[in-house]
Amino acid sequence: MELHEEIRKLENVRKDSTNKVFTMYLNTDPSDPEQQGGEWKIHLKNGLRNFEQYLVEDDDKEELKNFQLVQQKVEKYVRVNEQNFRKGIILFATADETVWFAIRVQLRLKTEFFWENAPVTEQFKQLYASFPKSGVILVQQDQVKVVEAEIGDILDTAYYELDIETDHWRQFTGPHKADASMGKGGKSLKQDEFQDRYEANKQRWYKSIAPKLDKRAKDKGWEEIYIIGESDASQEIRAQMNKPVDKVIQKNMLEHEESKVLEEVFG
């Protein structure tokens, strides 16, 4: 399920007074100065214990039983995933399992715990508003790379390379080190010869790949689109696409790690 749909689904949940919803935002970012000693473990332990103590004092045996069931599920999830933590965990759960959503995110969270009749989604919504499902298009002459991301997490990557003799863009499923001066049959073009062809044909080249990018944006449900590349290439791709582009960044980052690309886009 798409995250924005998951948020809408959670916002419609309402439970009774004994079968409440547990909401957790847990900061597990190892680069956070306040997390150097694994303080998240203390925060988690204290957060769960505080709710349990309150329910014991309130003498509501049914609600306490439900909370303890949720507590066990939360502790198991954390234990199983501890070696693969990122920067934070978002989790929603009920004892009857009608609500269970847990995701490890590559964004720092503000640690918060709630035990209420409805999920507390504010922080989740704020994160998604800042980092919605997006497509980042990196272009470098006859090479195009697409990075798809959501709330700081890389969902997919696609690579395209143009055969400049046939004018056909070929897609690769994995990382591909394209050679910008390779023509048909692998014959190497001199740099000045390639540059002449690029200047003469770039509009036609980008016009031929733009429909592929538009279709990908539609099929994948991108809410924002970013283009990164040198001025002429990035602006030409933008001009040829039908989908609106939110921002153009005039840098050559095609060979950079995806995480660095996302930092450039989302800061």
Rank of each mutant, 00 (worst) to 15 (best):
A178H: 11
V99W: 07
N19Q: 06
Q72M: 13
N242V: 15
F85N: 05
W100N: 02
R14A: 13
L10P: 14
P30C: 04
N66L: 05
W40G: 00
A93N: 10
Y77M: 05
Y54F: 07
Y160F: 15
G152S: 04
V78E: 06
G47Y: 15
Y206L: 11
H4T: 09
E224K: 03
Y159G: 09
G267T: 09
N66E: 06
V78K: 03
K73L: 03
Q36L: 08
K251N: 11
A239H: 13
P211D: 10
E264Q: 13
L55C: 05
F22T: 04
N242M: 10
G186A: 04
Y128L: 04
E165G: 02
E97S: 04
E148M: 12
S259Y: 03
W205T: 06
G47F: 08
K87V: 06
D167Y: 00
V147F: 08
A233M: 08
A178G: 08
K45V: 06
L189M: 11
K251M: 01
H176C: 01
V146E: 13
E75F: 06
Q126K: 07
Q53I: 15
D232K: 08
K220G: 09
P132G: 15
R216M: 11
P244I: 02
V265H: 08
S130M: 11
I164S: 06
L10M: 05
E230W: 04
V146Q: 04
Q53S: 14
L189S: 15
E223Y: 08
L162N: 00
G174M: 04
R197A: 12
E11K: 03
Y206R: 01
D163Y: 01
E82W: 02
E2F: 02
D16K: 10
R170G: 15
Q71E: 12
Q203S: 10
G267Y: 07
A178T: 11
V120T: 10
R104L: 03
E2R: 00
F194N: 12
D214G: 10
K251G: 00
V78Y: 13
F114N: 07
D167S: 04
Q83M: 04
V248E: 14
E193T: 09
E199T: 00
P33Q: 02
Q191F: 05
I209Y: 11
L109Y: 14
K212T: 08
A93P: 06
G38T: 12
F266T: 13
P132E: 11
D219G: 06
K212H: 11
W40S: 02
L155V: 15
A210R: 03
E199P: 00
D58W: 03
Q203T: 13
I249W: 06
L155Q: 08
N50L: 05
F172Y: 12
Q240S: 14
F172C: 00
D196M: 14
F266C: 07
V144M: 01
R49D: 15
Y77G: 04
Q123D: 10
K212M: 12
L262C: 05
R79P: 02
T157V: 13
E236W: 10
Q143S: 10
Q141L: 04
I89M: 08
N12F: 03
I249E: 07
L162S: 03
G183L: 03
